[in-house]
Design a protein around this nucleic acid. Structure first.
Lengths: 235, 235
DNA sequence: CACACCGGTTCTGTATACAGAATGTGGATG
DNA sequence: CATCCACATTCTGTATACAGAACCGGTGTG
């Protein structure tokens, strides 16, 4: 809760949110002067923001001049999930070994009662995703590994982008909650291997659901390329 | 092979090398004007370089004003290896599934003959580490996952820093080469699970060797805190 | 003698000005 | 009519100037 946020931070967060929320679509060219005037900052802090976005992998340098918003194809989603499998399995395993049992028992009861959350007609599912975010935070705290936490943080940014692309249906959310419940139970019971395996199961289903929805839309091209400014990228 | 490198790139690479090579020691305060004048660039590109170093986790903001070179304690080395176990196991597994067999058979023969490399009295072991780097590159190419490659790249930066801290003894290098040989053989044979397990074995021994050497030096504090400008960090 | 306040100094954060390079367009020529 | 060259526009990369804030020293007072 910074009292006065720096202009570069504001520019970074704004651009990051706009990219993650698909307001800036893949292939959009981010000119420095253009974005600087739009966001009301000078070019210097804006360049710093763009550098951070590049480090996150949300924008990438176009041939020669200009940065463009990174593409997010089904293939890159698969790539993200391959990293996610590795990191979240390790995180779950370590959390089971090191976590505070009480914290995860509390989360366990909340995930057991998650159907009440899902019944409330909250189109964005804020309550549910908030609970998942608290689970992620609890795992990060339990693992106590800044390198792992940093890698997971950048990964989660991309995952929010994926989530905004393919909204989960209620049936999937209910199933996902059950999978999360098993993960939390395993961590609370300090069963590292079960936690690792349950995480793999969850990620398997999550990716399969995304691929299924992509097939429903024939392909992601039509889904994400429907409207908006001309995407000059490969997507 | 950029024809003309940008000043920010030169500043970044120089600072990164100096940190990795322990010329800039943990706790060193990096003032903007000081480093800018020293490297012969203006503050603007230097700030960009510092931002990238921060994203890499090589420097971190000190309380309020100033950036300091990140600490590298035995605990943080263990953290790095926890991430490395997750990412390199996954990389080895995927490389075994997707790799070009011929490429890894070639590397296999080179690792089988690695003792000749180690006999040459090259104190820095450039030939050996070059071979390992080529193995890493071959795995990256085979995996064909930009997110995983990016995560491994930042991790390897920290690992070079660790390597410069604790020079491997010949016995360890010979053993490590044998472990690498098994990994390459497994990938060439498309045995994903063996490649994953062999990677775990290698990382286990590598970390144990570092911990053993750290104990020999009583603790890392005395090892890295022996000379140089006053480290104001916790190390 | 200790603590607090105040001034000076230095640093970060931001804006702007300038130079070099690349791109795109228009016209001229084959 | 197509192609190539030249010019102009625009953008990135860099330097520098300026403002606000934080730290350090000294000094005064309790």
């Amino acid at each position: 809760m910074a009292i006065t946020q720096r202009a570069s931070d504001r520019a970074y967060q704004t651009l990051r949110d706009e990219i993650v929320e698909w307001e800036l679509r893949p292939g959009s060219v981010l000119g420095e002067v253009e974005q600087a005037t739009r966001l009301g900052v000078s070019r210097t802090p804006l360049r710093e923001a763009l550098a951070r976005l590049m480090a996150d992998g949300l924008v990438s340098p176009q041939s020669g001049r200009g940065l463009v918003v990174t593409d997010l194809s089904l293939a890159s989603i698969r790539e993200i999930f391959e990293v996610r499998q590795a990191l979240e399995e390790q995180a779950a395993r370590l959390a089971a070994q090191r976590g505070d049992t009480a914290v995860f028992q509390q989360l366990e009861s909340e995930f057991a009662a998650v159907n009440e959350l899902l019944e409330h007609d909250d189109p964005a599912r804020h309550a549910y995703y908030g609970l998942v975010a608290r689970l992620d935070g609890a795992i990060d705290d339990a693992v106590d590994n800044s390198y792992l936490a940093a890698a997971l943080a950048t990964l989660r940014t991309h995952l929010v982008r994926v989530r905004r692309l393919a909204v989960d249906d209620p049936a999937r959310l209910s199933a996902a909650a059950a999978e999360h419940l098993l993960i939390v139970q395993a961590i609370a019971a300090r069963d590292a291997e079960l936690a690792a395996h349950a995480t793999q199961v969850h990620l398997h289903h999550a990716l399969r659901n995304i691929q299924k929805m992509a097939n429903l839309h024939s392909n992601l091209h039509t889904l994400v390329g429907a409207t908006g400014p001309a995407p000059k990228g490969t997507l």
